[in-house]
Each structure stands twice: as C-alpha cells, then as structure tokens.
C-alpha cells in the first residue's frame, strides 16, 4: 500500500474526536518545555524515585504517624473537669485499663476493657474463620475459571461495596428481626425463634457479609497466579483432582488465605457498626467502648490509652501470626 493510501486509511480509522485528541496530545508532548521537563526527569530518575518515595513517606507521616503520636501522647495525659485534657504525665489511664479490677484466683480476670477486647478478638476470629470457609470456594472458582464472565463475576463480588455499610446492616436487621425472613422461614420448618437479631450470631453474620470480599479477592488473586502446569503435573503423577487440590493448589494459595484472613481479622476486630446495630446488650466491641469513652464521657486520654492498648495487642497478634505464616511472602510478591 502506498504511503498516501496508508495515511488516508489512518485518518479514516480515526473519528474526528480521536484525531483531535491525538493532535492535542502530540502537541502537548512535543512542546518544548514539556520535552525538556520529561528529559530532565529521565535524567534524574533517581530524583524521581526519591520524590515518589518521599511523597509516600510524607503521606504516612502526616496522616498516620502524626495522629498516632498525638494519640500516644494523649494516652499519658489526664482528663480534667468537663473533658479538659490536662497535660500531666501519668500512667493512670493504662493502670485503669490493664490493672484495675483484675482478680486472679477469684476467677474474674481482667476488667471491662479487657473483657470487651477479648470479646472483640473472639468475634474477629469467628468472622475470619467463617469468611474463610465461605470465601474460599468463590475465590478459587474465580481464580480457576476460564469463563468470559469472570470480570462480571468479580464485579458482583465488589458490588456490595456500592451500598453503604449502614444500609447493609439495616437490611440485616430486617432479615433477622422479629418478623424477618429468617424467623419466618424457620417458622415454616417448625422452629420457633425470636430471630437472631441482637445476638452474637447477628454480629458475626453481618460482619461476614460485609467482609467477605476482603477474603475472596486475595484468594482469587493467589489462586489465579497458580500456573495450570502445577495442577496438571500433579495429575500426571497420579493425583486425583481432590488430592491435587490438597497437595498443590491449597498450599500455593496460602498467601491469599493469609492476606485475606489478616484483612478480615483486623477489620472485624475493629468494627463499630455491626455490634452497635446488630449486637445485643452483651455484644459491645472495643471500637464501641473507645468511641463511647471519647464522645460520651469526653475522656480523650482514657480513650487514647484504650486505642493504644488495642493497637499493641493487634500488632502483637499479627507479628505472632507472621512468625507462623511468613507475611513477607504474602505481601512481598
């Protein structure tokens, strides 16, 4: 094809808008100052890297470390009358969180804060185990399927994120409440119940529904990365599909399982709305207590100390988990 024909074909391929955009971009990119800037940047790739890293660090410093440092400082200060913060260093807040009311032989170990923290960890654990059981199969399926609908299915996984959290929890109130679906269906089968609303079951159910995508997506991601060759080679060596899954796919998807579990656990333990809306009188969690101490009692120092203790406990747990699973592997790749 002659050059002229080629060009005619090119322009015929482009719509007017595309041609305009093309011209605009080539115009912009060829402008002298832009060219010079790009070249300068290329020459200073090191500088560029430093700027990028610097931005990240600055972001962390301003929005994470600074507030955290403030909370840490607050936790050692004291509440004055009317919620005034008195800048007097003392360990009183930690003392009341960790030491007050702790009996050892008289059975009652720990105080309200520690009990609620324990309860939060328990809910976090239950939620993590349940999401793992429910999330592995869809995650695995999405990772393995060749279906052209995979993107659509992935979209469906994240679709619930488009519905605000509070609305989803209220929906559960309707589903599990007195005259809700669950009670009605159980009634048909002859099981009389007052519904599960305002119980532990409701809290964990709500959390599982909300956090499931955080389990499915990492599992999907790590299963999708497993080369078909691994599974096929296992089969050629005599492994039944089930055996091949157990020996090969499952261990190779462990990074996804750990990543998902950690995400879900952290989010579940720190959840606020689920226990507040779906939980019963005994189902408070640590976020609720901190929030109440912060807002209602106006005791910022005590609330900060609670937050710090919570953070330390969570961090310790994850570090221990890391020892067993090896998180570098999870997040390293």
């Amino acid at each position: 094809m002659s050059e002229r024909h080629q060009r005619a074909a090119d322009s015929a391929d482009r719509t007017g808008f595309e041609r305009y955009r093309y011209r605009l971009w080539t115009g912009v990119l060829r402008a002298e100052p832009v060219l010079r800037a790009i070249q300068a940047l290329k020459r200073r790739e090191r500088l560029l890297t430093a700027v990028q890293a610097g931005l990240g660090i600055a972001w962390m410093a301003v929005f994470l470390l600074a507030p955290l440092a403030y909370i840490l400082a607050l936790s050692f200060w004291q509440r004055g009358a009317g919620g005034v913060v008195v800048q007097e260093f003392a360990l009183a807040n930690y003392q009341s969180i960790l030491l007050e009311d702790v009996q050892l032989l008289g059975w009652q170990i720990g105080n309200v804060y520690l009990l609620i923290l324990w309860q939060s960890l328990k809910f976090g654990f239950l939620t993590t185990v349940t999401t793992l059981l429910l999330g592995y199969v869809p995650g695995y399926f999405l990772g393995r399927t060749q279906s052209k609908y995979r993107s659509l299915l992935l979209l469906l996984v994240v679709l619930p994120f488009w519905v605000p959290l509070i609305i989803r929890y209220y929906a559960w109130i309707l589903v599990m409440g007195n005259e809700g679906m669950v009670t009605t269906i159980l009634g048909w089968v002859g099981v009389e119940s007052g519904g599960f609303l305002y119980t532990e079951v409701a809290v964990v159910t709500g959390l599982v529904q909300v956090l499931l995508p955080f389990m499915i997506l990492p599992i999907y991601n790590s299963v999708a990365k497993i080369d078909d060759e691994f599974v096929e080679s296992a089969k050629t060596m005599g492994a039944t599909p089930l055996r091949a899954f157990y020996e090969v796919t499952l261990p190779l998807s462990l990074p996804g399982i750990s990543a998902g579990s950690i995400l879900v656990f952290i989010l579940a333990v720190g959840s606020f709305m689920a226990p507040a809306l779906l939980g019963g009188p005994a189902n408070s969690m640590v976020a609720n207590l901190i929030s109440q101490t912060f807002g209602e009692s106006f005791d910022w120092p005590l609330a900060s100390a609670m937050a710090i203790v919570y953070l330390v406990v969570l961090f310790t747990l994850i570090t221990v988990f890391n020892r067993f699973v090896g998180l570098e592997e999870v997040f390293g790749e």
């Binding site: 060759e229 096929e232 190779l252």
Partner: peptide, 20 residues
C-alpha cells in the same frame, strides 16, 4: 482415562516443580 489413571511421566515446559 483421566491423567491420574495413566502411567505416564511428563516433563513440562517450565518443569512445574512445586515451589512449596
């Protein structure tokens, strides 16, 4: 017969050695 019931040894292009 499925693969696991045939007595075949197979070497794959990228060896498919299990990393774990």
């Amino acid at each position: 017969r499925p693969a696991y019931e045939r007595e075949i040894g197979m070497v794959f292009q990228h060896y498919a050695l299990f990393p774990h």
